[in-house]
Design a protein around this nucleic acid. Sequence first.
DNA 1: ATGAAAGCGCTAACAT
DNA 2: ATGTTAGCGCTTTCAT
Lengths: 338, 338
Amino acid sequence: MRKSTLEEVAAAAGVSKMTASRALRGTSDVSKETREKVLQAAERLNYVGNRLALSLSSQRTNLVAVVVPSMSNIVFPEVLAGISAGLEGSGMQAVFGISDYDAAKEREIIRDMLSWQPSAIIVTGLDQPEDTVRMLKNATIPIIQIMDLDGEPVDFNVGLSHGKAGEDMARALIAAGRRRFGYVGSALELDLRAGKRKAGFERVLGKSGLAFMQSQIDDAFSSVALGKQLTRAALAAMPDLDCLYYSNDDMATGGLFACMELGVAVPGKILIAGFNGLDLANALPVRIATSRSPRHLIGEVAAKLARDVVADGKTIDRKRIAFTPEIIGIGPFENSTG
Amino acid sequence: MRKSTLEEVAAAAGVSKMTASRALRGTSDVSKETREKVLQAAERLNYVGNRLALSLSSQRTNLVAVVVPSMSNIVFPEVLAGISAGLEGSGMQAVFGISDYDAAKEREIIRDMLSWQPSAIIVTGLDQPEDTVRMLKNATIPIIQIMDLDGEPVDFNVGLSHGKAGEDMARALIAAGRRRFGYVGSALELDLRAGKRKAGFERVLGKSGLAFMQSQIDDAFSSVALGKQLTRAALAAMPDLDCLYYSNDDMATGGLFACMELGVAVPGKILIAGFNGLDLANALPVRIATSRSPRHLIGEVAAKLARDVVADGKTIDRKRIAFTPEIIGIGPFENSTG
DNA sequence: ATGAAAGCGCTAACAT
DNA sequence: ATGTTAGCGCTTTCAT
């Protein structure tokens, strides 16, 4: 049972390939009876169009290539879901690749994706090496860099400033009366956005004559378990901290769990601050501070941008779409739970 | 700066298209100098091959279509990561689609994906409607159904029996001395595997003359917050339960948080049991019971199966690969934490 | 070791 | 409203 082709459908309907093509796509005028005949023939033959041929011939794929660094916490899956939602009804299709925070792998994935002639490409972050950027530029398709705003975008840019997110969190925590800060994070050489948040946080600490009094950083990727482990180490080394800043909410959640196990009051004694505003963080039995990053929305907006740009070469003026994460979960010292 | 083609590379290298093609792919014999010339020309022109043309011409795409129901918890992203890992180095590429647990949407996504002429397709679950199955069969490519084993696979099947997972958990909990069971779940008409676990659990309860004394089920998708909310309702309705079974670990985690907030000892008074064995569940400050599902591994195995089947029509005998989730986190009544 | 011709399945452009 | 021709960029097949 070979796959049937347009030609076979046309023959079965007694019309030319072109008429069959038009009937199937609903473009231009085809008489009602002819359309019916073609649709029935297609149905009967279980016809499924061949997009390779379609795209090769029409010179547009309506494919949006997407490269994300990781699938091991919920952040990027939510971005992908946003992209998928933003593309819905547009006839465009997302193709995903995972770089595992590896620049070389990212380059190969991008090369691979570009060979499918996508109509646009969405990549995570602004820190691709020069050769990757060259490859991207060379593709002469819209390039949308998402999540981060701290750097020079190649073309379009949708995200937030992680440096500023770190600064804002530090300011909020200082305003809430915290002074004895510690930091817990992981894989900072790879997760550059986490590094930018930390740097921003430290800039503000410095301006107030403060600094991290204790810092626990591991090479492994972030996880709740790792956050727990590093928090135990941080508290063992410096028990009188009054605030811990984490590379993200997964780590911070682990930090909270460590405190609960150790009987350390949160936020009474220690305030725990993460980043992302995960649903999990908001459902925790004890409040932790976090910055809400609009992950799903960033994906959706990037996808809509891709649609608009591809639609008809429409000139888009807003090359940069910035979001500001809202800080939640910080209050005065009362309200402790251990 | 138009995209350069093989023809242009060939011209620049002073050879024919065919020779350039062979040099680039490293197939058959090309003299060392010729290869060099071609590679340099390709480099100079920033040549990126066109896979649409390649695939149309060669009649194979090396694409693996993957359809998952959701990206809103970590389970399917981990499956995708597993597939991505399992495909690495094979020259095959995964293309993902999200059905949102919607059968009609799933059918459209599958139709869409099939039009890209994938070499194999991986779909979640065994309960596709008849028309979707017909479409899949008609594609005459290997069909790999993952996650679930309870039903009739179209072709290949990699996963676990959710009915049995529910049964096993019920048996383990009864063996641990629990008798007064409640159930908390959500979206059971859509998440059929969760429903199968519940049914299996109830079968075993019935055999022991037991039943769920209280049951809280919502239409919304599972989340930690929802688990928390429904657990409060369940405990308000029936405070003397000694065990709650949840549709998954996200819900169960919410249940634990509810107990912590209410000061209900876990597992001293109530044992909380979920499903998945998420990293989160294992890092919780209080032990909950769960069944470890090998999500990443299922993805990896499915991907390798796709490789093998596609490789050279190799006949694969093992059409069904079954995993048995390990139950963890159940112990006797001591060890309580509130 | 290299090349020429044909064709993958479709659509764009131009008929009529 | 429908058909014809040419061609998208590559590989397959068959020559040489």
